[in-house]
Design a protein around this nucleic acid. Sequence first.
DNA 1: GCGGTGGGTTCATATGCTGAACCGCTGTTT
DNA 2: AAACAGCGGTTCAGCATATGAACCCACCGC
Lengths: 269, 269
Amino acid sequence: MSSATKTLELLSFFSASRPEIGLSQLCRIAGRDKATTYRHLQALEYAGFVEKNPTTRHYRLGPAVLHLAQVREATVPRKAAVQLSLSQLADATGETAHVSVLSGTVVYSLASCESPRHGTRAVIDITTFPLHATATGICALAFGPADLFDVAAAHLDRFTANTPTTPQAVSNLVDNARTTGFGSSNGNYESEVYSLSAPLFDQTELFVGAVTVASVASRFTPDLERKIKRELAKASREITHNWGGTLPTGVEAAWAETLSPLHAMDTTS
Amino acid sequence: MSSATKTLELLSFFSASRPEIGLSQLCRIAGRDKATTYRHLQALEYAGFVEKNPTTRHYRLGPAVLHLAQVREATVPRKAAVQLSLSQLADATGETAHVSVLSGTVVYSLASCESPRHGTRAVIDITTFPLHATATGICALAFGPADLFDVAAAHLDRFTANTPTTPQAVSNLVDNARTTGFGSSNGNYESEVYSLSAPLFDQTELFVGAVTVASVASRFTPDLERKIKRELAKASREITHNWGGTLPTGVEAAWAETLSPLHAMDTTS
DNA sequence: GCGGTGGGTTCATATGCTGAACCGCTGTTT
DNA sequence: AAACAGCGGTTCAGCATATGAACCCACCGC
């Protein structure tokens, strides 16, 4: 492990829950010598990656990281950062994949990608997603801010025979999303489109959006469902990471449970 | 210069105008050996600070910087990051200092700090600043987005005898701000309050807000004006830096000109 | 097929990184 | 008030590790 790598590793010990770290404390966390750690911190401080809290002499992340983040955002905007994941997802599942983001109480489409595998495809032709009637929306309700449910409950329009139009019916879908880690819509918005959706998170584990695969009802077998869920989990990890976020352990656990071989027997039985 | 410092320095060569850099190119920019630079880049890539564009093999900033920026923002929110600069500014000038930020076409107050030096003080009791009648607003018009002027011209309310109420009068103040690097208001909003304002910028040198000192007309001498301008420039550099931004060279040049001893003769004569 | 450029690799050399032990300070305990 | 523990910060001998000249291979224009 190079000196530079060790220096950079120090930065990863700072987090929202541990924003300031003293020298000795950092030595213990990193399991390294005090003199070494001190010199590494000096290098980081010189470059503006950390700064000293003048009163406590503890270290915290510095302004340089803001600077770099702005350059990164200008270089690879969020939209561009999902394109690769999205095309891989569409490719692996043979279905239409898309990513949407939450802004206030509205979930809008950021990017989508269709797979050429089948002649029939789901096409994402809406820009904002009804919260109660789409896999994406259910995901937002399940993992997003609590006050979103009231907004959803105030607009329970019926789109198809399957659209849930009572708060209780929506609540059931949301509960299911929370336990499985995936939002789902079986023709709730368009009768022939079955969708599955996985949430995306920021660094503080706040919901920021969802990645979704939209399939066609007639080919939506349990096997395909499992494949899509596996790929969705992968894509969600990837996109969340690319946006600088982290997945809550609860979601990972829900996925592990949902995708375990044991559970597979249940769903296919 | 330590290996870690050299590694970190590589990151500073990425910018909005040069977002992706190849290995050889980076060697030339940094003036370092190819093997060394390559190993440094590997360390950075391993830590997620850079990533390779898979098609061009060029390097660009990675997702880790977004992650760190979010932690930094959670650790030291912008408001907290200005407090120290602001109290130093209030202390050095003996006047009231405040920081405001531009959001859309509205300039709102982020934080303010009064100095106890004098019994009479300017008090910042508004939350949004009229663009045409305050030093802060003139600063926004001079250095902010061009379409702001139309917004300002549509609301030329008169507050005092000095308030500029014609587009031409506002335009003159804006021109003056552009050449001096400081917005000013001589009782344009409240007749007894004289204010000076310096702009704040983000990483792409876009105007994001202003730092202002509000003084009382009766003690606003040319000497005090010069002192305030010097301190404002210092505070603007500091806050801009703390927010991860960079000052346009044009503004620095305007300040240097305004604050030069030669220029001082002109203003005091 | 040839020169120029690019990314990536090798290896002997010596530079500069490492960590035990140290200092001076502060707040707490006895 | 003396002893103590913990902190941030410093020193220096010894050797791990960073360094860069020279190298390879692939690609591109000609």
